[in-house]
Amino acid sequence: MAAIGILIKIFIVANVLMGAVAYLIWVERKIAAYAQDRIGPNRAGSEFGIPFGLLQPLADGAKMLLKEGVLPAYVNKPLYLIAPVIAIIAALLGFAVVPFGPVGPNQVMDFQIAPYVDIGILWVFAVGSLAVYAVILAGWSSNNKYSFIGGLRSSAQLISYEIPLGLSILGMVLITGSLDLNAIIRWQNEHHVWGVFVSPLGFIIFLVSAFAETNRLPFDLPESEQELVGGFHTEYSGMKFGMFFLGEYVHVITVSALTVILFGGGWDLWGLLPYLNYKDVGWIAAIAKLSVFSVKVAAVILFMMWIRWTLPRFRYDQLMDLAWKSLIPLALLNLFATAVVLQIVRG
C-alpha cells in the first residue's frame, strides 16, 4: 500500500516537475523579452483564445517530439543515445530527497518522495554530479570538436565547483547539526533565522557555485553559444536535445530548492504568518508551507534568469581561477570560522 502511495507521489511530482520545467522555459523567454525591451512569445495559444503565448511550451514540445531524430553516422551510438537519458535521470533523481513541504510522522503526508533520509544533502550532491557524465559522454560520443571542447570544459568545471559547493554548505551543517534537509529547515524555523544570516559567506559561495553547477550564465561555458555553437549538444536534435534542456531546468529547480532550504529558511517566514511552524499539522498548514516554499523557489529561479540575461560570460580559465583561487579558500575559511565560533558559543 505504501509502495503504491509512493508511486503515485512520484508520478505526480515528476509530472508537476516536467510541467514546471516546460513553463520555466516559457518564463525564461518572457524574462529575456522583458529584459530586452521586447514582448516575447504571445502568439501560440491565441488561436484558442489563450493569452500571453501560454501554449508556447506545448508547441515546442509537440514539435520536438515529432521531429526527425537524426543519428549522425559518425557518432558512438550507444553513448550518444544514453547521454541525454543520463542527463534527465540524474536531474530527476536529485529531486527525490528535496522536501517541498512539511515532512514528519504527524503531518498529513510527507511532501518529499524519499522522506527521512538522514543524508539528504549528500544524496543531492552525489546524484547531481552524475549529470556531468551526460555532458562528457555527449561531448565525446558526438565526434565533433565543438562538442568535445564543450564536454571537456564541462567536466573540469563541474568537478571544480563541486568542491566549493560542498564546502559552502558545511557551515550550515555544523550550525544545524544535521545533513537531513528537513532538520535544517526545522532548525531555521525554530530559531526564526535563515541560513543566509547565520552563514552569509556560505550563501554567497553556494549561490555562485550553484550557477556554475547548473551551467547557467555567467558560467555556461560547456554550451557557450558564441564560441562553441551548441557545445556538448551541438549534434543533438529533436527530443534528445530537448532532454538536455529539460534536465538542465530540473537541475535549476533542484538547486533553487536547495538554496531555499539551506539558506532561505525553507517554508519559514519568521512567524509572520500563521500555520508556518514546524509544530503545525493539518492540511491548511501543509498547503501554506507548500505555497511559501514554491514562491521562494520561484524567486530564486527568477533571480537566476535575471542574471542570465544581464551579464556577460567568464572565460574558461577565469572560471577555474575563481573556483580554485577564490571560492575554495573562502569556503574553507567559512568552515573554519563557523567551527571556531560554534566552539566558543557552545562552549
Binding site: R29, D37, R38, G230, F241
Partner: peptide, 21 residues
Amino acid sequence: SRFDIARFGAEVFRGSPRQAD
C-alpha cells in the same frame, strides 16, 4: 525590440543545424 520575432515563438536562433527547423 521593435519587431520582435519572438512573438511567433521563432526567436530561438540555433547555432547548430541539428536543432533548427
